Simulated assay, not measured.
Amino acid sequence: MNTKIVHALSPVLLVGGGECAEDALTNAMKVSQTIVAADGGAAEVLARGRMPDSVIGDMDSLDPALQAQLAPGVLMHIAEQDSTDFDKCLRHIEAPLIEAHGFLGARVDHQLAAFTVLVRRSDQCCVLVGAHDVVLVAPPRLVLDLPIGMRFSLFPMAEVTGRSEGLRWPIDGIEFSPDGRIGTSNEVTGPVTLEMDGPGMLIILPPEALPQVTLTLSQSAARWPARAE
């Protein structure tokens, strides 16, 4: 059964209630045709003079006065408390790419929860954007043309293996795991090709990589299959 709330043929901007990189969010809102807010993220969108196309969540952090400002049909209340608002959004959005702001920031527990959702919903093409990093799950195959010397960190959220070209320290033959070998602080030495044998590897890059990452992901068909619920 199709339970999607938002259907878009172009990238979707998703705004959460956490810290947002001001300039990055402003630029994203200028070019985004579809804007979705995760619960309290609607306040950030409304404050910038836009009406979100949809607000998805359990509505425990969105002021009733702001809820009253939403256009009819925008509020999508999902009452269950077994998942985060970020998870609720990812499983109800259908789009070639989701650029998510307001999910990285001061609280480590919130960031870890967001990373867990990224891996759980690895069939979704989603990039978390913060002031210091952009984070995504490595798809089956990814090719990026990034500046030489750029930080290219890899952090496994599960046991995973893969292959690489264009990194100072190749990952071929390495068995990664969150409590074992990780791959932070790697470095770009040329055009990067990354192939993973399964979902579970986070790619963490500086914000300067965002334009190349979003362009590549929006044009790529490589996706992991959805997990059985």
Results as ranks from 00 to 15, higher is better:
208 E>Y: 01
118 L>C: 11
132 H>L: 10
127 V>P: 01
116 T>Q: 13
147 P>Y: 11
220 S>A: 14
177 S>K: 12
89 C>R: 07
93 I>N: 02
217 L>A: 07
126 C>H: 00
222 A>M: 10
91 R>D: 11
105 G>C: 13
115 F>K: 11
151 R>N: 15
184 T>Q: 07
166 G>W: 05
124 Q>W: 01
196 M>H: 03
152 F>N: 05
106 A>R: 15
180 G>F: 09
205 L>M: 10
212 Q>F: 08
146 L>R: 04
171 I>N: 02
86 F>E: 01
126 C>Y: 00
109 D>C: 09
183 G>L: 04
217 L>W: 01
109 D>Y: 06
210 L>M: 08
189 T>K: 12
135 V>G: 03
190 G>T: 05
91 R>A: 06
129 V>T: 06
195 E>M: 14
150 M>K: 00
140 P>S: 10
175 E>V: 12
204 I>P: 05
209 A>D: 07
191 P>D: 13
125 C>D: 07
164 S>K: 08
217 L>M: 15
189 T>G: 04
122 S>G: 00
157 M>Y: 01
112 L>C: 09
85 D>R: 08
125 C>A: 15
217 L>R: 15
214 T>Y: 01
118 L>I: 12
199 P>V: 07
95 A>S: 15
187 E>T: 14
119 V>C: 14
181 R>L: 13
155 F>Q: 11
202 L>S: 06
147 P>W: 11
217 L>G: 03
103 F>A: 04
182 I>F: 04
177 S>V: 10
209 A>K: 05
178 P>V: 04
211 P>V: 07
188 V>D: 03
102 G>T: 11
189 T>N: 07
168 R>L: 14
119 V>Q: 12
205 L>W: 02
110 H>Q: 15
171 I>K: 03
160 V>S: 05
110 H>A: 09
106 A>M: 12
123 D>V: 02
95 A>I: 09
219 Q>M: 13
140 P>K: 09
159 E>K: 12
185 S>K: 04
176 F>T: 03
149 G>K: 02
107 R>Y: 08
198 G>D: 10
129 V>R: 01
198 G>L: 06
201 M>Y: 00
128 L>H: 03
100 A>R: 04
85 D>K: 09
174 I>P: 01
82 D>N: 15
